[in-house]
Amino acid sequence: MRRFLYIVPLALFIALVIYFFVAMRGGYDPSTLPSAMIGKPVPTFDLPGPLVPPSYAGPRVKLGFSNRDLLGHVVLVNFFASWCIPCRVEHPVLMGLGPAADVPVVGIAYKDKSQDAVGFLNEYGNPYVAVAMDEGGRTGIDFGVYGVPETYLIDKHGIIRLRYVGPLTAEVVAREILPAVRTLQQSP
């Protein structure tokens, strides 16, 4: 018993070292918060599109959409803004995602002005099949957005399955997003 007591501090120290080691693992960001919306239905919203449609080369975009429009297929909802620098970092990843990944991406411009959002899309290209304006940021709050960019994976029944905070990278898409998309697409 006595012997055992002497080992306790060493055991605690080793446990702490293991904890620190695990907490420092790559890609782990403690400031990233878990979403309270996982497993819940997409909040009700009906947002208008930008006043002027983006004039990029490519298929026509749906301007404005509501939560009902998301039902029926697996879809990614991406909150972006023309004033958001990480969104520019993420943009090429989104551009590569749409057709190749076989998952529609819809964009919600968070606290952005119509012509600024369209200007952003015209300049860098449009990765979205539909674009809506959330100028007041209320829909963002209903989703639990606390900083753009944020990406939500919605299943066929309109349930939020995954949230990614911060700019998507090719690695995150390949490791987290696409496997989840495939699983959801195969489930009824």
Binding site: L33, P34, S35, A36, M37, I141, D142, F143, G144, Y146
Partner: peptide, 8 residues
């Protein structure tokens, strides 16, 4: 607000 952002 907790419903949207969680207990955090």
């Amino acid at each position: 607000i907790v419903a949207r952002y969680g207990d955090f």
